[in-house]
Write a protein that binds this DNA or RNA. Structure first.
Lengths: 114, 114
DNA sequence: GATGCTATTCTGCGTTACTATATACCGGTA
DNA sequence: TACCGGTATATAGTAACGCAGAATAGCATC
């Protein structure tokens, strides 16, 4: 899918929160999950800027663990604030996406009338 | 709805394209349509930056008409490029929103299993 | 020791929506 | 006349976000 960058603004962070909420995970793995989801163009750098932001905003707990696959991993889990932020995200998504779909539906209706 | 600014990035322009596609309209009226849709916080300035961008990218035709309600209005209609851009927007929206909803659905499934 | 995968970090960039303000036309009204 | 509110456009500056690109590092395998 061509250049969906702008449309991901404001939702990618929510996706990362959601993925972390499933159980502790780290940046590289989150990137892979997002690619599996279909956002195949996502690169590590993008995810790391998000996780660093989550750290800054105190939405996650962090634990560093060694790995036998490479350098140590930084595992993230959601704290209470992160959980709340995730719920807010889904509420916003419900609101915005329903409005956009309404606009789209009305469009179809109008076209049927034509 | 509290602070949906970031989530509107990349979709607001598409909404404006869609509204224009219904028939010629002008900035102030577009703002009102968006407010009616539910995006009540949208102000004129936001819409004007979008319409000016549409002009710059040659996606619209422009016609200035006098009004007896105030200063002259700049009426916009979509040209072929604008129509195409609108279709691209809806394709992107379908893609992104379906992926996000998939993530959400899986979430619910997992919770049911618990 | 070279290559490749895993894994994190950082800097700078471009795009976008928003804020705030200015300008202007018109009608009503005090 | 002067003022105000609604209609209407414009624009400079700001903040936030996702992304590109590069550097660094650990481990396995050849």
């Amino acid at each position: 899918m061509e250049n969906i960058t702008e449309m991901l603004k404001g939702v990618l962070e929510g996706c990362v929160l959601e993925i972390i909420s499933r159980g502790e995970t780290y940046g590289y793995e989150i990137t892979q999950r997002l690619r599996e989801l279909g956002f195949t163009e996502i690169v590590e750098g993008t995810v790391y800027t998000i996780t660093i932001r989550l750290e800054k905003n105190n939405l996650v707990n962090i634990e560093k663990k060694p790995s036998n696959m490479g350098p140590p991993r930084k595992f993230y889990t959601l704290n209470a604030a992160g959980q709340e932020q995730l719920e807010i995200f889904w509420r916003k998504w419900e609101f915005v996406s329903s409005k956009i779909n309404e606009l789209k539906t009305i469009k179809i209706k109008r076209r049927e009338v034509k």
